[in-house]
Amino acid sequence: MKALLPRLYLVAIFTFVFAPIVTSMVFSFNSDRFPTVPLGGFTLHWYETAFARPEVWTAFGNSALVALSAAALSTALGFATAYTDFRYNFRWKPAYLALALLPPTVPLVIMGLAMLAWLGRLGLSGTLPGIVIAHTVMGAPFAMAICRLRLSQMDPSLEAAAWNLGASPMRAMRVVVLPFCMPALISAFCLTAAVSFDEFVVAWFVSGLNKTVPVMILEILQGNVDPQINAIGTVVFVTSMTLVIAAQLIILRKTSR
């Protein structure tokens, strides 16, 4: 068994990575208020108390609205940029692509501060559109990467053929390119929605009174030990994972054809 040691090491790494995720799920069903081992009994109490609070529902509503809007904008922006990179060459293209892909390298705290100051000037700080704008900036590079990968699987002459057959560029886009990219568009939408649904640093700076779910978690965390966090966190996890797995399945099914 020569491969035993590497396998054990992998198990250790995955244990480290998944320990906090599993812990929070397990303790969300644990009846003791203070988390200790051995565990107390099974309970749904923390879910009930968490979701009995109206502000939790408001936060989920805000998060859903922000995530869907930011995902739609990110996907549109990401696709337009990916198509530009795929189809055209121009003088400042490297700078253009750097501009498109740079946002994820800026620390979130700095994005938060810059956005707070900027959106304040525009009168958008403390509003949901403000959060949507920030999340779109952060999500667009991911959407672009996904769309670009899909476009690179397309034969460039396909579109040219449509043009030669008399289709206008817009019609060729609608009939040829967009249908081909549909799986990428859907999965980019799901992934950017998941990114927005989990983002809390910039949202915390910008949100004011309109809190999203992660911002609310952050504020509960600043108080005391509260197993409601585990319950809310588990619901967020299941939501995000549903989006991610949906994205994954769509990509696998559609691109394998």
């Binding site: 303790f27 978690i217 966090i229 995000s240 991610v244």
Partner: peptide
């Protein structure tokens, strides 16, 4: 795609 905050809270517990 899991909340980093919730994971950090879990480490606080652990």
């Amino acid at each position: 795609f899991t909340s980093y905050l919730v994971r950090v809270y879990a480490w606080q517990v652990l």
